[in-house]
Simulated assay, not measured.
Amino acid sequence: MASPTAPTMKAPRGSRRRSVIAPGDTAPPNRRQDILTSAEELFAERGYHAVSVRDIAARAGVPLALVGYYFGKKEELLGTIFEHRRGYIDERLQRIAAVDCSPANPNAVEDLVQAWVEPAVLLRATEGGAAFSRLVARLSDQGPETDRVIEPHYDPLARTFIAAMQQALPGCDRNLLVWGYVYALGALLKHISDLRVERLSDGHEVTADPARMPDLIRFLTAGFRALAGGTR
């Protein structure tokens, strides 16, 4: 017999995918948001494959059936987390598009790096941003299920950034810039998620410190310039 608290109604045929949460949907009790937050935290703490739907329901304090009702399968729930955070990706795309990559702008490389880095670093400092940042860092090597979520959200961003950097560094081979993007991504993910800096600095530095963002931007800018052999 079904639990009296578990919903039994089905979404109308042809309705939008159930895992989508409308912006500003916070009507109490906000069980959907509780599930989403719990999943984000657990995926960040343990990794996607080490977390079960039952774990998520227990953390959120909701019936197990409710997770499937609102979000479908675990992979759909992971996808919803990234849909919910989509705004910071769109901001990065818009900022990259706004950079003048012509020879008239001698700071084009640094401007592109800043447009790509800054929203990610600042997101880390927002409510829930730390868990999401750790989640992004964890997902890079966790298999096809996570690749299916990462690819539609982050590959367009990567391609946009690389194309803009080609304009800023016209003498640099595109494949070299692809490697540059991979190197830069590793540095950014470590900046926003790794706790080791606190230990190595004997507690003098803080993970994802926004005050260190200019240093990160300078470091990555120098790296792209070095790959281009000293061109702009």
Rank of each mutant, 00 (worst) to 15 (best):
T8H: 05
R13T: 09
S15L: 08
R18I: 10
A22L: 14
P23M: 09
A27M: 11
D34W: 06
L36K: 01
F43Y: 14
H49E: 15
A50I: 02
V51R: 05
V53G: 00
D55G: 10
A57F: 08
A60C: 09
V62M: 08
F71M: 02
G72D: 06
G72M: 03
K74E: 04
E75V: 14
E83P: 01
R85G: 06
I89M: 09
L93P: 02
A97C: 03
C101I: 00
N105F: 10
D111S: 11
L112P: 06
Q114C: 06
Q114P: 03
W116E: 04
E118M: 11
P119C: 11
L122Q: 13
L122T: 06
L135F: 05
D141N: 12
P144V: 02
D147R: 01
P152R: 14
H153D: 00
L157K: 00
A158L: 03
R159C: 00
R159E: 08
I162T: 07
A164P: 02
M165S: 09
Q166W: 03
D173V: 02
D173I: 01
N175C: 04
N175V: 01
G186C: 09
L188R: 13
L189G: 09
H191T: 13
H191L: 10
R196Q: 12
D202K: 08
G203F: 08
T207S: 10
R212K: 14
M213C: 14
F219K: 13
A222P: 07
A226S: 13
R232H: 11
